[in-house]
Every structure is written in C-alpha cells, then in structure tokens.
Computed example of a mutant assay.
Amino acid sequence: MATKLGPNRYGKAETRLVRVVRDGPVHHIKDLNVSTSLSGDMQAVHLTGDNAAVLPTDTQKNTAYAFAQKHGVGQIEEFALLLARHFVESQPTIHHARVEIDEYAWSRRGPHSFVREGGEVRTCVVHHDRDGRSTVVSGLKDMVVLNSTGSEFHGYLVDEYTTLPPTDDRVLATAVNARWRHTGETSSYGKSYEEVRQAMLEAFAGTHSLSLQQTLYAMGDRALDTCPEICEVRLAMPNKHHFLVDLSPFGLDNDNEVYYAADRPYGLIEGSVLREDAPDAGFAWE
C-alpha cells in the first residue's frame, strides 16, 4: 500500500506565562496561556527521523518567555504576531506559524493586589506564513449570559419522539464562545475587543428571542455593524436549559420563579455572520 505524508504541524501547547510590570509601588499583571505551532519543510523528521529542520518545542516555550521580557506584553494579538513572525523569519525550514493565546483577567484590589475575574477568557489566534501574509482572529469564550424572560420557542417540527412543550416565556441562558476575523492589522485590538463584546451583550439583552439561532445572528450582526475592522464573526452558544420545577406535590404554585438548571444534555447552536464582501478566510480559522 502506497502512502504519503499529509498536512502536519507541531508545537508547544499551553505555555503558562505571567508578566508583572512594576511601576514603582503599583504593579500591572498579564496572565496568558500561549500555544505555538509550526509547519514547513518537515518531511524528513516524519519519514526518517532527521531533526535538522525542527525547532524544538522547548525553544518555542523559551521564546515566549524571552519575548515577554524583551518586548513586554500589550495586546495579546500583537504579542502573538510578534512570535509568529519571529519563528517564520528566523528559521528557513519554518514556512507557517500559528500562535494561540488565552488571556485571564485580574481586577485590581490594591497597588499590588489582584483578584481573578470569573470564567470569561479573552482569546486570539494568529497565523503568519513565509509569503508575509498574516491573519488575526480575536475572541472570547465562556461569557455566560442570561435573559430571565423575553424568549420563546414554538412552531418547531414535531414527530412521534417530540415531548418538548412549546413556550412563549422561558429563561434563555448560554455561555458565548465567539471569534471574529479582522480584515487587516488593527490600530487598537483592545478597543475593538471592547466594542465587539459590548455590541454582542447589547444584542443579547435587546433581542426578543424566538430561537437561540435568532439571537446568535443578532449578536454577530450587531458586532459587524459596530466594528468596521472585522469581517466575520463565528459563534458557538450552548443552550443552558432552565426547567420550571413542578411544586404542585407540595401545594405550591410556581409562576415562572423556581427553575432547575441542567448542565447536560444541552443544545449547541453554532453559526457565522459575515459581510457580503468579506475576503477569503484562507487559513484564518485553522
């Protein structure tokens, strides 16, 4: 049987990096999870075990730490671009670099005291190749939101296995995982992040929802309308079901007040919203 080597890449996953900037008695903190992945002229290492083209994953880890000290850590997209370009431009066998960063938020409680924020995480994925092309996808994950009313679900397909009753008043809750693609390099990734995040929150709160799909589209549409520097938004939104508890066995009424929050199973709604003239995504989402 004849075989050949297909697409491949390798790297260092989840390098934990914390950078403290000491501005006199006032300190600033950046808390990152950095993953790097490289590809290029790598046939020999797979076929014969020749490592001559391989930049060790330990070196990739050390580069992240060294660059944090040498260049500092500002916006995660800029730090990811710096790393990706370095790997491609410094090693002739590396033709493509992918850098993914998660950033964990801390709130100040004193000059050098912080408290870790909740579950929401800021993210980015950057690609850079030997032709000089770069793509930047920013995002967030685990942003938990809930509307206690203003959501309906009815008029759906019904067959012999359907037991779900229609409703014109339900709790709508989800953990938003969103990514958005930039059309080019952005003057302020931090500003665009806040604009997109706020636009999605406003759309979630302001949409009378007949389905979570409708809400997803409204959130992506609002983000694109608000931020001209992005051209596509992809969202994954699990439906965090809240079921009304039957309190009649205890002689109690339950007028949409007491719910059971189920974590499994859950509906998973996914979709993308993009401008009609959005450029080809290329490798941006890989």
Rank of each mutant, 00 (worst) to 15 (best):
T48I: 11
D131Q: 13
R85Q: 12
E77S: 09
N147W: 02
E117P: 02
G118L: 13
T123E: 08
R98Y: 12
S134C: 10
V158H: 11
D50F: 06
D159W: 02
L81Q: 00
G139C: 00
S37V: 05
N147M: 11
E77F: 10
R85D: 01
S107C: 10
S37Q: 14
H46Q: 04
Q69E: 10
P111I: 12
R85N: 01
R116I: 01
F67N: 04
V121D: 13
P111R: 12
R85H: 05
F87E: 04
L146Y: 04
D50T: 07
T93Q: 14
A84G: 05
T123N: 09
K70F: 09
G72H: 07
Q75V: 05
E160T: 08
G132Y: 05
P92F: 04
R116W: 02
R116G: 03
I94D: 04
D159N: 10
W106H: 11
S134F: 08
M42G: 09
A44H: 10
H154D: 11
T149I: 00
D159K: 01
E77M: 09
S90R: 10
F114H: 10
H154M: 03
I76F: 01
S90M: 03
Q91S: 13
H96S: 07
Q91N: 15
S37F: 11
V126R: 06
E78W: 01
Y65R: 09
Y104N: 02
T57Q: 03
H71V: 01
K61L: 08
K141I: 09
A97P: 00
E120M: 14
T57R: 05
T135N: 02
I101M: 00
A105W: 12
F114K: 11
S39A: 15
H154E: 09
L82T: 13
V144N: 12
S90I: 00
T63Q: 10
F79N: 06
G118W: 09
L47A: 15
A44W: 07
T135A: 06
V145K: 04
V54C: 03
V88M: 07
G40C: 02
S151Y: 12
D131G: 14
V136R: 01
H154L: 06
E103A: 14
Q60Y: 04
A68R: 09
R98W: 12
Y65L: 13
V126T: 08
P92R: 11
K70R: 14
V99Y: 05
N51Y: 06
Y156C: 03
D41A: 15
G132F: 04
A68I: 09
V145Q: 09
V145N: 04
V145H: 03
Q43D: 15
N51M: 10
R98C: 13
I76T: 00
Q91C: 08
N51C: 06
L55Q: 12
N62M: 04
V145A: 06
F153R: 09
L157W: 13
A68M: 10
D50C: 07
K70S: 13
A53F: 01
V145T: 08
L146T: 15
V121K: 12
S134D: 12
G74L: 01
R116Q: 12
D102I: 06
V45I: 14
A66C: 07
Q43T: 14
H112I: 09
G155P: 04
E77L: 09
L83F: 02
H128G: 02
Y161W: 03
V145L: 15
G139P: 00
C124K: 04
G40Y: 02
E100N: 12
L146D: 06
L47I: 11
R130C: 03
R108W: 10
Y161M: 00
V73H: 00
R108Y: 10
H71N: 11
Y104M: 00
